[in-house]
Computed example of a mutant assay.
Amino acid sequence: MSATSHRPDGGASKDGDRQTIALLHPGRMGTTLGAQLVAQGHRVLWWSTGRSAATRERAEQAGFAEIRSPEALGEVSVALSIAEPSAAADIAQAVAASPFRGVYVDANAGRPDRIRETAALLRRRGSTLVDGCVIGNPQPADPGPRLYLAGPRSAVDLVTRAFGAGPVGVTTVSTEVGAAKALKSAYASHQKTAYVLALLSLVYAERHGVREALLDASRAAPPTLPEVGADVGRAASVVARAWRWAPELVETADELQESGVPGDLASAAGRILARWDAAKDQFDADWERVLTTVLHRSAAFCEKE
């Protein structure tokens, strides 16, 4: 099925279309998605148990309503799971054990076979799963991030209507659960690995005093290297998100291998990113801090290898 994009014209949802939606959880990307739902007139709930002070601050600033027990999920029509991939299965299990009986959107990175298992679990509990993934920067710019959905048409249409118009676009990729996860794996194996290679190239050039010359030579090259090199915010963003990208790329490598595609490059990039986890969420790092993180942490990686 060909992808169908939705960025409808119009403002907030009509009263009859307003829903109660659970956001699990309000990280940077989740908050951007949840803010658009609030702007459409929906009531957005967040489950605070075990969440950090930073998460609470984001949720409160965005106008989300706090819940402290999974029992409250019984009043929810849509639950949107957007968290680090390692937490996705636990979130799904918790929702399956709750009174929730609505549409569950798993927008996390993951494997197609595992999301189909999650769909079966939720179906046994009376819920419908929509497979999803998010591609793009969490900043609510224009264009903003895009949410890709796959699954039963009626459930996908319900989620699409809930988002309405805004910086977060919605695209239907398939009626088959697993298609959105496959899309995310395909995208990540290129995009995230490209960022790692670009940053390593820049750090190597810096050590030899040719970083500016490399940037000049790359003007006519594919965009990743000049993008990372010319914008320290982009470089900082790579190391700041390394803790989250690493397990995603390792899992992507496994998925590639099992599909008959070499996953070595994605696997290596994932292992390198895992070494940069000390820079977690340091989005305001300057070039010197980025350089120090990459050099010191990657040196330990090289010694181990």
Rank of each mutant, 00 (worst) to 15 (best):
A179Q: 12
G16Q: 13
A198E: 07
V238E: 02
H190Y: 14
G126L: 03
V130P: 08
A240W: 02
V239D: 02
V156P: 08
D113H: 14
S154L: 12
R56E: 14
V156Y: 06
G30F: 02
Q257K: 11
M1T: 12
G169A: 15
T252Q: 05
A186I: 13
G169C: 06
W243C: 06
T31H: 05
G151R: 02
K184S: 09
G270K: 04
V228D: 01
L256Q: 15
L273I: 05
G102W: 00
A155T: 06
P138N: 03
D264I: 08
L80T: 04
R51K: 12
V261K: 00
L273S: 09
L197W: 07
A53L: 12
G169P: 06
V130Q: 11
G102E: 11
W46N: 03
V239T: 15
V170L: 07
G126E: 12
R219W: 01
V130R: 05
L202H: 02
D281N: 13
D113E: 15
I82P: 04
A253Q: 04
Q139C: 01
T160S: 04
L199N: 01
P143L: 13
R123S: 15
L24R: 09
T171Q: 03
Q61R: 15
S189M: 13
H190E: 05
L37C: 03
D264R: 14
K14L: 14
Y204I: 13
N137Q: 13
S13V: 06
A39Q: 13
G209R: 07
L121H: 11
S218W: 10
Y104N: 03
L214T: 06
L256K: 07
T31K: 02
G144F: 06
A205E: 01
A107E: 10
R123C: 09
A213D: 07
A88F: 00
L199V: 10
Q191Y: 12
Q40S: 01
A94Y: 03
K280Y: 05
A182F: 04
A54F: 00
P8E: 01
D131K: 00
P99V: 02
F100S: 05
A92Q: 05
I82S: 08
G63K: 13
G233Q: 13
D157S: 13
G11R: 05
D277H: 11
T160C: 02
E206H: 09
R51A: 02
R297K: 12
Q282A: 14
I67E: 10
P99T: 04
F64E: 11
A180H: 00
R7S: 09
V105M: 07
S98E: 08
G178I: 12
R111M: 12
V210D: 10
P223V: 08
R124L: 14
S127Q: 10
H296E: 15
H190L: 15
S81L: 06
A221I: 01
V159G: 02
V134C: 12
E248Y: 01
P152E: 15
A236P: 07
V228G: 01
H6K: 04
E251Q: 14
M1Y: 06
T292Q: 13
A205Y: 05
S298A: 10
K192M: 11
E176H: 11
K184H: 11
F64T: 09
V196A: 07
S185M: 15
A194P: 03
I91A: 11
A235C: 04
